Amino acid sequence: AEEIWQQSVIGDYLARFKNDRVKALKAMEMTWNNMEKKEKLMWIKKAAED
C-alpha cells in the first residue's frame, strides 16, 4: 500500500524538492508515518484490488 501511495505522490514530492530524490523520499516516509489509519486504509484497499 505504501508503494502505491508513493508512486502516486512521488512527482509532487520531487517537484517540491527540486528533484532531490533523497529529501523527497525522506519527506514521503515521514508523511506516510504521520498519516491517519483511515487515510492509509484507502491505499491498502487500492493495493488489494491490484
Rank of each mutant, 00 (worst) to 15 (best):
A1P: 10
A1Q: 03
A1K: 02
E2H: 12
E2G: 04
E2T: 05
E2K: 13
E3L: 14
E3M: 14
E3A: 14
E3H: 12
I4V: 10
I4C: 12
I4P: 02
I4T: 07
W5R: 01
W5L: 00
W5H: 00
W5I: 00
W5F: 07
W5C: 01
Q6H: 07
Q6T: 08
Q7P: 01
Q7C: 12
Q7I: 09
Q7W: 10
S8H: 14
S8M: 08
S8T: 11
V9A: 04
V9R: 03
V9M: 06
I10F: 10
I10M: 11
I10T: 03
G11L: 14
G11D: 13
G11S: 12
G11E: 12
G11Q: 14
G11I: 13
D12Q: 10
D12N: 08
D12K: 09
D12T: 08
D12H: 11
D12E: 15
Y13R: 01
Y13C: 03
Y13V: 03
Y13Q: 01
L14P: 00
L14Y: 03
A15M: 13
A15F: 11
A15N: 06
R16K: 10
R16L: 13
R16I: 11
R16S: 06
R16T: 07
F17E: 03
F17R: 01
F17P: 00
F17Y: 13
K18D: 14
K18Y: 12
N19C: 14
N19R: 04
N19T: 03
N19M: 12
D20E: 04
D20S: 05
D20L: 03
D20W: 02
D20F: 02
R21L: 12
R21T: 08
V22G: 10
K23L: 14
K23N: 07
K23E: 12
K23R: 11
A24E: 00
A24R: 01
A24C: 03
A24I: 04
A24S: 04
L25G: 05
L25M: 13
L25N: 06
K26Y: 08
K26V: 09
K26M: 12
K26N: 08
K26P: 01
K26D: 10
A27Y: 06
A27W: 06
M28K: 00
M28C: 02
M28R: 00
M28N: 00
E29G: 07
M30Y: 13
M30R: 07
M30V: 14
M30H: 13
M30A: 13
T31K: 08
T31F: 12
T31Y: 14
T31I: 09
W32L: 00
W32N: 00
W32C: 01
N33A: 13
N33T: 11
N33V: 07
N33E: 11
N33S: 10
N34P: 00
N34W: 04
N34R: 09
N34S: 10
M35P: 00
M35C: 02
M35I: 01
M35A: 01
E36G: 13
E36V: 04
E36H: 06
E36I: 04
E36S: 15
E36M: 03
K37Y: 15
K37S: 15
K37L: 15
K37V: 15
K37R: 13
K37C: 15
K37M: 15
K38E: 15
K38A: 13
K38R: 09
E39S: 03
E39K: 04
E39V: 06
K40T: 02
K40D: 01
K40S: 01
K40W: 03
L41M: 09
L41E: 15
L41V: 06
L41Q: 09
M42C: 14
M42F: 15
M42P: 08
W43N: 02
W43F: 04
W43Y: 04
I44K: 04
I44G: 07
I44A: 11
I44F: 10
I44P: 02
K45A: 15
K45E: 13
K45F: 06
K46M: 13
K46S: 05
K46A: 10
K46L: 13
K46G: 04
A47G: 04
A47Y: 09
A48V: 09
E49F: 08
E49Y: 08
E49P: 05
E49I: 09
E49Q: 09
D50I: 15
D50W: 08
